[in-house]
Design a protein around this nucleic acid. Structure first.
Lengths: 121, 121
DNA sequence: CCGTATCCAGAACGATACTG
DNA sequence: CAGTATCGTTCTGGATACGG
């Protein structure tokens, strides 16, 4: 075994690569908000456009494409006229729930302590 | 109560703002890797430079500054000659451990399923 | 309705050289 | 040792107009 993982106390240890993988998939301004919106219920493009506040159609389209390629989101085209497209979270996408919950918990617990946001500098 | 949080099953629900807060603090290519490195043990600048593979001194310096402003990392100057500077994780920084663990767990469990990385396109 | 194409500004990131 | 300054590139995200 090349890399031995030491699990001492509650320390966060080595194995940075899987963390980077996760971060890569979730990177960007909109991926998590889109996933959160879709966790509530499946959505059409325009509905998502309203739900995810501030996003442009271009970014929504682009982010959905990446999420779909990563199998986190499923795109279903209904052959009505005009076409309706439905986006839903996959089981795989759902497996992100613990991560998102931890992020939200941390964000809520420590919101008051936040002193500095890079983008406000 | 303005926003009622519904906790049905294991869905990830509304309250996107705390998630965004967390994401803002942890955004960028290097924050989490730096925190992970510092969770193992306190480090001097040059040691960190080696530990966090691929980072430049400029980015390391900039990211450490932001992490320090957010009280996730503590910077201690020892008045030796030449000066030595020591970076360590704070208790507050340590509170990120569950988040990082979830990220790593997800990344490890699902690494094989990763099909598309934006940056490889 | 569901997007795409084009153009563009600014931020993020990196290489290199330099300082106290 | 512990950074900063400068410059250049790449990536991100937004505005607007258009297409199936």
């Amino acid at each position: 075994m090349e890399a031995v993982i030491k699990q001492e106390r509650n320390l966060c240890i080595t194995h940075i690569l899987p963390i980077r993988d996760a971060l890569d998939i979730l990177s960007g301004k909109w991926k998590i908000p889109i996933i959160v919106a879709l966790c509530v219920h499946k959505r059409r493009f325009k509905e998502l456009h309203r739900d995810v506040q501030g996003i442009t159609a271009k970014m929504l389209s682009k982010e959905l494409k990446e999420l779909e390629l990563n199998k986190l989101v499923k795109r279903t085209v209904h052959d009505t006229s005009p076409v309706t497209v439905e986006y839903s979270i996959t089981e795989y996408g759902h497996s992100l729930t613990p991560v998102i919950n931890e992020l939200r918990d941390w964000g809520m617990k420590h919101r008051d302590k936040i002193i500095y946001h890079p983008e406000e500098a």
